[in-house]
Each structure stands twice: as C-alpha cells, then as structure tokens.
C-alpha cells in the first residue's frame, strides 16, 4: 500500500508540468486568450497596441459584475437580474445627485452598493427561505427592477443625462493615475479582494463548501441558508457598484441601458472555468474570462465594420464556441487526470 502511494507520487512528479496545467485550469485559458489576441492583431494591424487600455476599460464593469456572479455560481445558484439591478442602482443614485442630495463620490457608491445589496438580500432570502429556484426569483426581480425605474412616484425620471451629474463625478471614473484610469483600479481591487475573501476567510471557504456539497457543509456547522443569502447580497452589492461605475463612465443611465449584460457576465464566468453546478471556480479564471469577452467585443466591430448585422451573430457564435471548447478541453484534461490516477 505504501509502495503504491510512493509510486503514484513519483508518477506525478514525472508529469509535473502536465499535472500542474491540469490542476490550474487558468493556464490553457490564458493560452486561448493569447491566441485570440494574436489572431485579432494579425487581422487588424496595430490592434493590440492601440486597444489594450480600451480592453481593460471595457472589461472592468463586466469584471466587477462577474466577481459577484462568481460568488453566486459557487453556491450553485445564478442571478440573471444583475443588469436590471445595475440600472436601478445607477438610476437611484443619479436621481439623488441630480436633486442635490448627494455630492460626494463615496455617497454615490454607498447608495449604489446599498440598493444592490438590498435587492440581493431579497433575492437570496426568497431563494433560501421560500425555497424558490434562483432563475425564477431573479427573472421576476428583473421585471420588478426594470419596472421601478421609470415610475414617476418612485424616481420621477426618464433618464439621467450628463447635465445631472457633478463635475467631479464625471471626471473621476476615467481620471488616470499612472496612465491607468480609476475604473480599472476599482475593478482590479474588487477582483483581488474577492480572491482573498474566497480563499482565506472562513466565510469564503463556507461558500465553496456549500456549493460542492450542501449537506456535508450543513453537517460541519455551516449556516447554509445564510451563506446563500450572503452570496446574493455580495452579487447584488457588486452589481450596484458596477451601476455607479457605469454612470461615471457613460455619464448617462436609462431603463434597459444594460439589457443583455447578464449574459456576458455569465459567459465570462463560464469561460473562466467556473462550474455552473457550484463548488468550483477561481477569480483568476473569471478575470481571464472577462478579458476574453472584452477582446471579442472590441475585435468584432473592427473585423466586420461594414457588416453590422453580422456583429451580434459572430459574437454569439464565438462565445458559444469558446464555452463549448472549454468544456471539451476540460473533459480531455479530466480523462488524462483519471488515467494518471490509474483508475
């Protein structure tokens, strides 16, 4: 028996590079991203040098949303209301700024995050305590949040335009320090904090535990229901935060402005190797996934400038193909892995 184990470890050592790659799914992903970038750079000369900052800027809002989505996917849930929550949070914060109730950056973020967290809490509570499936709750929430935006008696607005915002707020998000805009710093900070949170805190580990085996987690004393609520609160709060970032970036918000964004957020997570069944997924993968989406996003208009009709079509195909490819690679890796273990 002992001999057996030592042989296995030896075997593992000899395949160390391969097993390292298998263990860290992010490495093949990084390869795909590199291939993607190289391909586009060849097709569109001067693409990368002129666009890398754009890619970063484009992916930052998506990344913040995807970090929240990661938490939710990890517990085996899903949230398709993020885009609607983003709009609602940005709309409420925008109205408060227009009416002169908030002047500061921190105030804006506090309102956005607060609104998002509240909705996340409602989502999570209904799921946990009403035992309703995530997709139904968040589908309903999408309707609710979108319907709340144009209602006169709640917000009294049709849209927020540049004129409604303070000078400082308008400049802040895209203000550059060391050649990098603030929006990218925010996204980076969120991603790093999320990574640390999931990896090194008790609650973070509980999220993984809940996702991979709920029953076992409960036995170990994890308050599963509250962990689920918490994951949704985080997701909602980050969606609200992304709403403020969006308001700072585009200086405008109206109902339906982020329509369909949820799809790209989920796609970024799935591309990043996050399992939709829960329990597996890393922030590094999500970052790479978000970068991939942003690359596809910025490359396609350059490739098909005069064929606008083709754009959405190819975007859909590319994302679908990338997701399926990822699954196939996964399977190949798993097969190898099993072979290595002599099963």
């Amino acid at each position: 028996m002992k001999r057996d184990i030592s042989e296995k470890t030896r075997q593992k050592d000899s395949f160390s590079l391969l097993s390292y790659v298998i263990e860290h799914r992010e490495i093949p992903l990084l390869g795909v991203l590199a291939v993607l970038l190289a391909g586009v750079s060849i097709a569109v000369p001067g693409y990368f040098t002129g666009n890398y900052m754009n890619i970063l800027k484009n992916c930052s809002m998506n990344l913040v949303l995807a970090s929240g989505m990661l938490c939710v996917l990890l517990i085996g849930s899903i949230d398709i209301s993020v885009a609607a929550v983003l709009e609602l949070a940005a709309a409420i914060a925008g109205v408060l700024m227009r009416d002169g109730k908030i002047h500061t950056m921190i105030g804006m973020f506090a309102v956005g995050i607060g609104v998002g967290a509240l909705i996340g809490f409602i989502n999570g509570s209904i799921m946990s305590f009403g035992r309703v499936l995530p997709i139904i709750v968040t589908l309903g929430m999408t309707y609710l949040a979108r319907a709340l935006i144009p209602m006169d008696f709640i917000l009294g607005m049709n849209k927020i335009a540049r004129i409604d915002l303070t000078e400082y707020f308008k400049e802040f998000i895209l203000h550059e320090y060391l050649g990098i805009p603030v929006i990218v710093y925010i996204a980076g900070a969120v991603a790093i904090l999320m990574g640390l949170f999931l990896r090194y805190t008790r609650v973070g580990r509980s999220i993984y535990a809940t996702g991979s085996n709920e029953e076992a987690a409960r036995m170990r004393g994890v308050k599963v229901k509250w962990i689920k609520v918490l994951a949704h609160v985080i997701c909602g709060a980050l969606a609200g935060m992304a709403g403020i970032m969006r308001l700072g970036y585009y200086n405008a918000i109206e109902k339906g402005a982020a329509n369909g964004q949820e799809m790209y957020v989920i796609a970024a997570c799935v591309l990043g190797g996050v399992s939709v069944m829960g329990g597996y997924g890393k922030i590094t993968g999500v970052v790479i996934g978000a970068l991939m989406i942003a690359t596809i996003d910025s490359a396609i208009p350059q490739l098909f400038m005069n064929a606008t009709m083709m754009k959405e079509f190819f975007k859909g195909i590319l994302i679908l193909a990338a997701i399926l490819l990822n699954v196939l690679m996964q399977r190949a890796a798993n097969k190898r892995n099993l072979k290595g273990r002599d099963i």
Partner: peptide
C-alpha cells in the same frame, strides 16, 4: 438606440 452600443460602435469607428 442604446447608449452602450452607440458608444462602442463610435469608438470602434474612430479606431478604424
């Protein structure tokens, strides 16, 4: 008629 899309297509237009 979508803010984000309008912004993005303009950006890629200017890049191109």
């Amino acid at each position: 008629d979508d803010y984000t899309k309008s912004y993005d297509v303009t950006k890629s237009l200017i890049d191109k």
